[in-house]
Amino acid sequence: MIEILSVTGPASVQDLGRFDQVRFGVGTSGAMDDVALRAGNILLGNDENAAGIEIPMTPFKLRFGRDTAFALTGADVEAEIAGRTIPPWWRTQARAGDVLTLKAMPRGARSYLTVSGGIDVPIVLGSRSTQFRGEFGGLHGRPLQVGDILPCASWSVTIRDLGIEPAEITLARSSAAADETTVRVVIAGEYDGFDAATQQLFWQSSWKITPQSNRYGYRLQGPEVKPTVPIEKRSHGIVPGVIQIPPNGQPIIQMRDAQTSGGYPKIATVISADLWRVGQARLGSRLRFEQTSYADALAAETEKSAYLDRIRASVRLVEECLT
């Protein structure tokens, strides 16, 4: 069991998401950086879908109620437990009573704490992820608060410290500038409703991530991108990654807690292989879009899976070598 001692911003319990309830209006929720959550679970020998804690802001502090193996992945955090510093993308052992402190987040936007066996909140509609809008899932369907007690399904295993290479390093893509993230997108239904010059503006701009960006969506700021004639669609299903253009011409990327449908014109969709990069892009930093084909988007998905496969194989191998 884990007790939350200090929390800043909306930290929440998330697994990979709730994927088959869209016909009831239920969005996916789930970790904004699915690669980091999976990697943490792989480090601990968990099911990759085991629930962890998504921590978007520091300081964050919790106490372990019993001996527990845990991992920190995702954003780079300056973390400490019982006087020891924990490197990024690392698993280690907590003793009963140990306090884990996340002091600062010098890189990235969300840290993931995974524990051996996973955070054991009830499965609601097929997932442990927090559904903020529906107020269910996670811990009572809400962000974590000081004093919350989270049950862990941990078994008493003792593991040795081990780190893995952060996805941002292995899956690095050349970026034009520091503090700028480039993500690949596939064009969407209304792309042709924008004239060539406006399309160019969309591709060539470095979009600023405004403070109104969160798990629902990333609201971007830049030149006005407006369709040739205003487009008002009949409401239709949308998924995380869809980039809508509301009438003010400022793009919104739908994220994990997005509505399941919308009617604003869609210019493109961030491919699912790159959505974690958006989830780790900081408020105030910049985003750039790069057009890709459906086939290349699938290849990117394969590359992401290959990274996770390599981690899985490496952890197993090192485990065998060192025991």
């Binding site: 690392w90 410290d161 780190g163 893995i164 290479e165 292995t170 390599r310 952890v315 191998l317 060192l322």
Partner: peptide, 13 residues
Amino acid sequence: IIGLVKVGLIYAP
């Protein structure tokens, strides 16, 4: 931790 040994994607302390 004194340093890391990188083996593939693993960072062993």
